[in-house]
Design a protein around this nucleic acid. Sequence first.
DNA 1: AATGAATGAGTTTTCATTCAT
DNA 2: GATGAATGAAAACTCATTCAT
Lengths: 200, 200, 200, 200
Amino acid sequence: MARTVDPLLGARRRRQILEGAMACFKMHGFHQASMHQICASAGMSPGAVYRYFRSKDDIIAAIVEAWTNSQMTALEEAPGAGALTGRLNRFVSRWLERFTEHGQSLAADILAEAAHSPSIARSLARADAHRLKLLATAIRAAQALGEVDTSINANDAAQVLFSAIDGMSLRLVTGLDTDARAARRQFRELARRYLLAPAC
Amino acid sequence: MARTVDPLLGARRRRQILEGAMACFKMHGFHQASMHQICASAGMSPGAVYRYFRSKDDIIAAIVEAWTNSQMTALEEAPGAGALTGRLNRFVSRWLERFTEHGQSLAADILAEAAHSPSIARSLARADAHRLKLLATAIRAAQALGEVDTSINANDAAQVLFSAIDGMSLRLVTGLDTDARAARRQFRELARRYLLAPAC
Amino acid sequence: MARTVDPLLGARRRRQILEGAMACFKMHGFHQASMHQICASAGMSPGAVYRYFRSKDDIIAAIVEAWTNSQMTALEEAPGAGALTGRLNRFVSRWLERFTEHGQSLAADILAEAAHSPSIARSLARADAHRLKLLATAIRAAQALGEVDTSINANDAAQVLFSAIDGMSLRLVTGLDTDARAARRQFRELARRYLLAPAC
Amino acid sequence: MARTVDPLLGARRRRQILEGAMACFKMHGFHQASMHQICASAGMSPGAVYRYFRSKDDIIAAIVEAWTNSQMTALEEAPGAGALTGRLNRFVSRWLERFTEHGQSLAADILAEAAHSPSIARSLARADAHRLKLLATAIRAAQALGEVDTSINANDAAQVLFSAIDGMSLRLVTGLDTDARAARRQFRELARRYLLAPAC
DNA sequence: AATGAATGAGTTTTCATTCAT
DNA sequence: GATGAATGAAAACTCATTCAT
């Protein structure tokens, strides 16, 4: 009867649930996946799941959080050294990979959820502000180095470049496009032409 | 033997239902809006609604169809005369307007739906292929006129430009961005720099 | 505008409705067939149907009435002349034919309905009493002629013979049996052995 | 980790539901009884009922199965020893008792269902083939013993005798007849006269 | 800490019936 | 007489959530 209380059990269980839920959500969408499917997919009972999450919406919120964190990770994994366009391309590669490697992604569901749930929208907005700031800062640094045309507004550029990245991601998610490699190439070309100072 | 059978009644009712459904879907999303809400919003009884649509999914499909048609209309309303970038900008203006004027849009829900429903995905893919072809053709024509850098692949350019447009649209839908006018300006700048032949 | 009021229109319409309803009921059963199907099958609108019948139950009642009448007809078509067993066999032939010629019959549905609806049960009981009386009378006449064993109770015999007929009919209706000809032969043998005076 | 999981709970609940459903079906018929009534009658919520049965049709199928099993039981409870007619009479007694002791029976509903549902028809046909085989075999054995007229075809006799039993059962179910004791006597007389070798 | 049976309000959909034309 | 659009209560079934064990 030794009560070996594992202090990390909670974290482990939460991860377990989120993974099960993610699999279901990717397959069916947030509102078409049932808690029963999620429980089965996580290998737990409803009672156990509800010990770690207050509600389905809570799980969705946690998954959105994990998703934005994963984007941050991808951003940070494309490290600061080297020219801006190179770093940007590395990020895009990593990011688009995640969409194709899982086959299906949650991106569209998350955006749809954000369109109807203020709290999800807030969560997304926070992450978006962060990534925009990172990129705008990097652009300004590159402009200082003469790497990027100084007549470009860094904030605008950050927004429009992330718009393109998001748009391309969604093409992959919805099956409008299936060639992540081509998407990467297209983005590289876009970024190069858009950002580089015209020689004249 | 003479009732005034209105031959347009069917079409009118369908429109009435679609408008009611659209309002509900914009507010709550496809799967959070209930048929009861839709009936109330359309001012009809369930029986009446089901006289004109076989199922909720049927309504969703019709709304997606209407949405893609509306995009086609916006494309065609940006008429062929003048330089490509001008026409493109006019389309983007019209398109982004639709997102903001309705306050909330269905774009994200439609993409999420496409990620899980093959038939919706097909519907979307058809419209996408059409708009890509239109834009690629226009780009090639502009290249022939020396208006656009000939080293650009027209198909790639069409994809990446529509990616940017879609990405910007979703920023407005999800509230990441609220300034449609700024978005338009950003796109204009992107398209100009991306497409124009470098002077050297 | 000559208002040629057809005094038989009502009767014609009722027949038309009953025929449509019968087709639907045979195919799906009383409670699985919808009024819409019935209207379509009768080639009339719901409004028209409800002009001639107060309710679906009313239609069912009329159909049960028609069914019992048809049994009476079959009884009377097996005319009185000749030996009892011959007449009985002729009735059974006619009766079983009706079950197979339509492929599906209402017999089982009518009995099920009678088990739950007092008014249907009454309707059926009236017809049953009538046929029992006819048969018992015929048996007594045959007994007087020495054609049938006088130690048999005529009322009991009528009941048990109609039980056998009904049971055989239901075997055909439910597909337990498909050979009406064999059924006829079986009944003939049963009646002969059961009724005939043992030679000793 | 130790809840007392009752391994028989499932079976108990299924029985509980079938009993509730049976009561409703006897009173109203398969298609007139609502799931709400069934749930109330079983003392369970809809969710609980649907944990144990996939659909209303599933419940109907299970009830038909139980009904045919009960007939098999009645057959086997009329043991092999003794003369055929005695055993047959004992079966008929037991069988007809079940119709009257419950007041209302499902027999007619089951036949009606079989007339429209192939799967129910199959279920019924299997049980019918079994009982026919049992009876035909018994008849042949009795013929070998000189107990039954050898000029009778055993298969035909089995069919026609069960037809009579079914027909009599339905008379009780539908209220055409209420005297099970008289029915038994009638059948005894029928079987005796039909089967017994004429002395001459 | 975990189970999984149970809940019951809610979902989508059907259908007998009515009534304005 | 007839139409068929409309009704709305009720049907079958689902599912997020709870709680006794």
